[in-house]
Design a binder for these strands. Structure first.
Lengths: 140, 140
DNA sequence: CTCATTGCAAACGATTTGCAGAGAT
DNA sequence: ATCTCTGCAAATCGTTTGCAATGAG
């Protein structure tokens, strides 16, 4: 019970990929996909980007969100905390809103169904103002 | 403006796949994936199942929902109308709730952000009662 | 030296597509 | 006969994984 950290896992050794990926995220590019990250880091292979992101997520430094049909986007966990994503299924626009907007639904789902909403891992899908307007079956 | 239905598309000809797929859905299996559908129809290729489903959706007979990480599930549009899906990200359980549960959020998003929520195309993700309980980091 | 980390290619699951042939009207 | 539909194989997209080489401690 002294050296045995039950869930400590392997000893982490800083390699090039992890550092570069974190640097990019810290540079504040906002939500970005693994592929876009790899595109900015010619020295780092896409698969290494995914692996680096996985480790960083495990450490709680990074978090990812699935935006509707598109690929997942990554971000510093601290930046992701207070917001939720509304993604337009038509144009892909990502509308970021304060997480508080979901509190009433969250409470209701939890009380009535025991379901704990995780609105920060998957975006909520719909249509943005512009696309909603355009979608009203061709006025006329 | 007589014979020219602006968006009528190609003349549909009933083929084996489309009929079989629709039969299965009418048989009331509830939400089912394209692959499961294909598995029940040895005479129909998966790709034909997807194509049949696409046509049926275009006609408004069928609708599909994306359940979190898993594949999309298909259902008769009329059966899908009144419900929303809460999917557990841990065990995959699909909790079906009346669509009314989302009305307050829907109204708020529309009023405050002009965003039209489409809660029937993508499930809302979280943890079911059992998994939520189990997730509270190993009590003890 | 040892073990984590990386690169690369190949595997993956879900879905789509090109093409030639079978089938419906 | 015409034009849609189907089967099959191959391609796609996003992501994961096996394996051997590299590198950090």
């Amino acid at each position: 019970m002294s050296t045995g950290d039950s869930a400590s896992g392997p000893v982490r050794r800083a390699g090039r990929a992890r550092g570069r990926v974190l640097d990019e995220l810290v540079a504040g590019l906002g939500p970005i996909t693994a592929e876009d990250l790899a595109a900015r880091l010619p020295e780092v292979h896409v698969s290494s980007v995914y692996r680096a992101l996985a480790v960083l997520e495990e450490e709680g430094v990074v978090a990812h969100v699935h935006l509707g049909h598109g690929p997942a986007v990554y971000q510093l966990a601290e930046e992701a905390d207070a917001v939720r994503h509304l993604v337009c299924d038509v144009c892909g626009l990502d509308v970021v809103v304060p997480s508080g907007v979901f509190s009433p639904l969250r409470r209701r789902l939890e009380r009535d169904y025991g379901f704990v909403l995780d609105a920060d891992h998957f975006a909520v899908v719909g249509r943005c103002v512009a696309c909603a307007r355009a979608t009203r079956r061709h006025p006329g």
